[in-house]
Computed example of a mutant assay.
Amino acid sequence: MPNIQWQKSSYSAANNECVEVRAVDGAVELRESDDGHVILRTTPAALADLLQGVKAGDFDHHA
């Protein structure tokens, strides 16, 4: 696998605790910057669906 650079949000905390993302072989990989050996791999469509759901409040659960 090529050494593809991880990208992080410009909104990341100064202490570098953030989620990083990169595209590899048609997939999207995500990791936490402070636990870089754990990588979640998904499709661009699945990530887009997740982000749309987050923005729409689909995962907001109020007791």
Rank of each mutant, 00 (worst) to 15 (best):
S33Q: 08
T43N: 03
D49V: 05
D25A: 14
K55N: 10
L50K: 04
A48Q: 14
D35F: 08
A14Q: 12
S12F: 06
D58K: 07
G53Y: 04
V24A: 07
N3I: 11
E20K: 02
A23P: 02
H62S: 05
L30M: 14
L51Y: 07
P44N: 05
G36A: 15
L47F: 06
W6Y: 10
D25I: 01
K55C: 01
F59T: 01
Q5E: 15
D60F: 03
M1V: 12
V28M: 03
S9A: 11
L51K: 03
S12T: 12
E29H: 11
D58A: 06
I39F: 04
A48L: 12
N15Q: 11
H62Q: 09
V24H: 10
N16T: 07
G26V: 06
V28D: 00
A46K: 09
P44H: 02
S10T: 15
N15E: 14
A45W: 00
H62I: 12
L30G: 01
K8L: 11
V21R: 02
H37S: 15
I4H: 10
G53P: 03
A13Y: 10
L51Q: 07
S10L: 08
Q52T: 14
V38I: 14
R41S: 15
A14S: 13
R22A: 05
Q52R: 13
D49R: 11
G53V: 04
V21L: 14
P2Y: 04
G53T: 07
D35V: 12
G57A: 05
E32N: 11
R31M: 08
H62V: 13
N15P: 02
A48T: 14
E20C: 05
G53W: 03
A63N: 08
D35W: 06
T42A: 02
P2M: 12
Q7R: 13
I4T: 15
Q5N: 14
V24C: 03
T42P: 00
L30H: 00
L50W: 08
V38K: 11
G36C: 02
K8I: 14
I4A: 13
R41T: 15
A14T: 12
D34M: 09
Q7H: 13
N3F: 05
E20F: 01
G57Y: 04
D25L: 07
A46P: 00
R41E: 11
D60C: 04
D60S: 06
D34R: 13
S12Q: 11
A63S: 10
V38F: 06
H61W: 10
F59Y: 15
V24R: 06
A45H: 06
S33V: 04
A48H: 10
D49H: 07
R41I: 10
L51E: 07
L47I: 05
T43L: 03
Q52W: 01
N16H: 15
I4M: 09
A13K: 09
L51A: 11
A45I: 06
T42S: 11
Q7N: 10
V19M: 09
V28P: 01
C18R: 02
C18K: 01
T42F: 00
V54G: 05
S9L: 09
R41K: 13
R22M: 08
R31D: 04
A46T: 09
T43R: 01
A13C: 07
S10A: 14
S9G: 08
V54Q: 05
P44I: 02
L40E: 01
E17F: 14
M1W: 09
E17K: 14
F59E: 05
A48Y: 02
T42H: 00
N3E: 15
I39P: 00
S12M: 08
